[in-house]
Simulated assay, not measured.
Amino acid sequence: MEPLDLPLTTDRLRLRTYRESDAEEQLRIFSREDVAQFLLEDPWTTEVARTKVSERIPRTGLETESRALALVVETADGLEDIEGSRVIGDIAIWLDNDSDEKAEVGWILDPAASGHGFATEAAIAVLNVAFDHYGLHRVFAQMDARNTTSANLAKRIGMRQEAHLRKDLWSKGEWTDTLVFGMLSSDRHQA
């Protein structure tokens, strides 16, 4: 499998691999209670941010030992509504444990950057890579059922809701529901 040509660029975004200096910018996003609310982890501290970013630095492609691609989402320079380029989130894709043809995708974006279509743009770019570059058969996303913003994004990019698992995950002191969305490579050709 050929290494992926990075960074990925879209009309308004640059999706690049992690570097140590990203800890501070990602801390600004991941330390927010409203961001961590539906995640499996608590809001980040400075130390957690350093550790998480260090873990993500080697995730440079599905063909690598990590079997994962973790990307920082940045706005491109020169956007009229946002001054300069800045980090607005994270998007990652990782191979399923039992298959080289299935992968899970996940995204976290700064709520302050919502409403501009950035999450949609980033997610479509990653799905394109998953199917066109890596030739995957299936990509899926799982999320807390209360996370309607994330569920709406999955629908917007053409993923289909495949399951609503009731009280299947113990998270932060309570049983929570999980939504599962999926997309097959064949789904893209029917759209």
Rank of each mutant, 00 (worst) to 15 (best):
E2T: 04
E2K: 10
P3W: 00
L6W: 02
P7W: 00
L8E: 01
L8G: 02
L8Q: 00
T9W: 00
D11R: 14
R12N: 09
R16L: 01
T17R: 05
Y18R: 01
D22Y: 01
E24R: 12
E24S: 10
L27D: 03
L27W: 07
R28D: 02
I29K: 03
F30R: 08
D34G: 01
L39E: 14
E41Q: 14
D42S: 12
P43S: 10
W44I: 06
W44S: 08
E47M: 06
V48H: 06
V48C: 02
T51Q: 12
R56Q: 14
P58S: 07
G61R: 05
L62C: 12
L62D: 03
T64E: 12
R67Y: 08
A68K: 10
L71R: 06
V72M: 07
V73T: 11
T75E: 05
T75L: 09
A76N: 04
G78Q: 13
L79H: 11
G84P: 08
I88S: 10
I88P: 02
G89M: 06
A92F: 12
I93G: 03
W94A: 15
D96M: 13
S99L: 09
D100Y: 14
A103M: 13
E104C: 13
W107N: 01
P111A: 09
G117L: 03
A119N: 03
A119P: 02
A119K: 00
A119F: 03
E121L: 06
I124C: 04
A125K: 11
V126E: 02
V126S: 00
D132V: 07
D132G: 03
G135S: 04
H137K: 10
R138H: 09
V139D: 02
F140Q: 11
F140N: 02
A141K: 01
A145V: 07
A145I: 03
A145W: 05
R146F: 05
R146M: 08
N147F: 05
T148V: 11
T148R: 10
S150F: 03
K155A: 15
R160V: 13
E162M: 12
E162V: 12
A163C: 14
L165A: 13
L165P: 02
K167F: 09
L169Y: 10
G173H: 13
G173V: 12
L179Q: 07
L179C: 07
V180Y: 08
V180L: 14
M183Q: 15
M183H: 07
S186C: 11
S186D: 15
R188P: 03
R188C: 06
R188V: 09
A191M: 15
